[in-house]
Write a protein that binds this DNA or RNA. Structure first.
Lengths: 330, 330
DNA sequence: TTGAAAGCGATACCAA
DNA sequence: TTGGTATCGCTTTCAA
């Protein structure tokens, strides 16, 4: 069933059908209504390929993730999917994983699908190779990065001030009397690095430079975090507060404290990052830095939508994470 | 840059270019290599709309979810996305939410995008209206349902034997000496209903019919579960084991027990469902029923792939959940 | 208010 | 081993 079949049934030309489908003017109201009825009766919908080919717009956006196990990334993705669905766009969603070499591959796939715009979720897309690939495949199409930024004309990004946020948490802890802090970071991303810098800023500002050695880089798995935290606390029992770059790592920290017989928050304070459901599920609930997933998704949607409409958008939008005190800190 | 531009550059006809792009025979090896070089140099990729229009295959599948907050559903979705990406398919992923009336809408959207096949994730798609919509929009295209089934020729499904699984858990608990059981269920889906039936089967088989009253239907939110569990245990302190239809609800149960000063598992056993990360994060870790997300995803992928290749697939594939004993039960 | 015809960028058949 | 041409189902311009 194509537009010509419908035209034949309605006894008009396919041009008129096209006008009705796309709510364009120039059709007698009577004719329009008659055609609408037929369209409905035959459950007709236009072939999206033909439409895309003829109009050079297929109303599809691409959403690319690093790791689907990162729920605040998938949350952002689905927030964007939902808001674009309301605008009549479909979303091709894919995950390219931690292997950076796959980023080019997936960017290419997205381009080959003729998506009108692209959202990249995660600071890991902020690297030179990704920049090259974007230039190669998306030179003239809008790209938005959630928690990242690349200096290209068609790219804009949301940047979370994670460095500042962690630094402020250090201030907070020092204000509560903590002097021996540790920072446990997940795999190297720009974001992880920023958080670590924030920790360094904080201990420097507070003259706690010997804490510099209390930085661990580990895998983003809570059982790894548990093991590493145990090892750390056995070696340095003087530590009274640990900041983790992800809530899920802080969960591992909580487990480690249990197994060492430490009381939280009396003996030690545990701080997470993301304000994810993990921080609420945990017992005790975990004091955390809210990285504002929802606001990020909202801004990305708006920005991409604006760019698709040919509007200019500020290249970087800054968001300040907020500190949420729960049960795991004193 | 289209196929004609490339043809001009290469000094051959676009037909030859098409042959090279699609690795078809009938091109001199020398010519093929020369063209491949040009293709790469100009970073050319074919227009997917044109390709879809001409070949009537756009290499896109649709994946439809109910609730993106349900991580074992998103896990299944991304598992399928990943395996189809390897086959050169893109995935349009969307969430239609709990409002059943949106299912028709989204099924229509998927059809209008000319997806070659569709995966529906969640037992909530197992209803008459969805069946009608599938018949209307997907009469001749393969559809796979994860955890559901509809009696249509082009539809196949994976069915988890949840009823049996819950019934067996009741047996297990009774075997451990429990006599007063409760069952806390989430919102009405076919799946939730199956689990509840399993509970009823179990208490019937074990002559514990008075437990029938200990069934609660609540919202799938852990804090709701916490409140409801507290209320239940205050009213009926004789209960020694509670089965929840989702891990996240069991987490609420754990929290409730804490606040009532009950020891887990000494005073009460808590059982979840899904073997999700929540069950491991919780302290104590939660004994749970593994609904085999990974196997489900794997089967859905294989089944859809087979159907896309014109092969016939068994309409229903049964999977048995497995019981995983962790710390929260005795 | 309506319709005829060209064009979008591929595929595939048939002829050379 | 190659290329010409029709075709897929739509949008859009121009003429009626």
């Amino acid at each position: 069933m194509n537009i010509y079949d419908i035209a034949k049934i309605a006894g008009v030309s396919h041009t008129t059908i096209s006008r009705v489908i796309n709510s364009k003017p120039g059709v007698k109201e009577e004719t329009r209504e008659r055609i609408l009825k037929i369209l409905d009766e035959y459950a007709y919908f236009p072939n999206s390929c033909a439409k895309g080919l003829a109009s050079n717009k297929n109303k599809i956006i691409g959403i690319l993730l690093i790791d689907v196990r990162n729920s605040h990334h998938t949350d952002t993705a689905f927030y964007i999917e939902e808001s674009f669905a309301k605008l009549g766009y479909a979303s091709i969603i894919a995950a390219c994983g931690w292997d950076d070499s796959m980023q080019d591959e997936y960017l290419r796939v997205m381009a080959s699908r003729n998506v009108e715009g692209l959202v990249l979720i995660g600071s890991r897309f902020q690297n030179d190779n990704a920049q090259k690939s974007i230039k190669k495949y998306f030179n003239d199409k809008p790209v938005v990065i959630a928690n990242g930024y690349l200096p290209l004309d068609n790219v804009c990004g949301v940047l979370l001030e994670e460095r500042k946020a962690v630094s402020q948490v250090v201030d907070h802890l020092v204000g509560k009397g903590h002097r021996n802090l540790a920072f446990i970071n997940d795999n190297c991303t720009v974001s992880a690095n920023n958080k670590q810098q924030g920790f360094l800023d904080g201990i420097q500002k507070n003259d706690l430079l010997w804490n510099e050695k209390n930085i661990l880089d580990i895998h983003t798995r809570y059982y790894v975090s548990k093991e590493e935290t145990e090892k750390l606390l056995r070696e340095k029992p003087e530590i009274t507060a640990i900041i983790y770059s992800e809530d899920i790592l802080a969960v591992g920290g909580i487990k480690a404290c249990y197994s060492l017989g430490l009381k939280i928050p009396e003996d030690i304070s545990i701080i997470g990052f993301n304000d994810s459901i993990y921080s609420d599920i945990s017992t005790p609930t975990i004091t955390t830095i809210d990285n504002r997933t929802h606001d990020t998704g909202e801004y990305c949607s708006k920005a991409l939508h604006s760019m698709l409409n040919g509007e200019t958008v500020e290249p970087v939008y800054h968001l300040e994470p907020t500190f949420k005190i729960k049960e795991s800190s004193l």
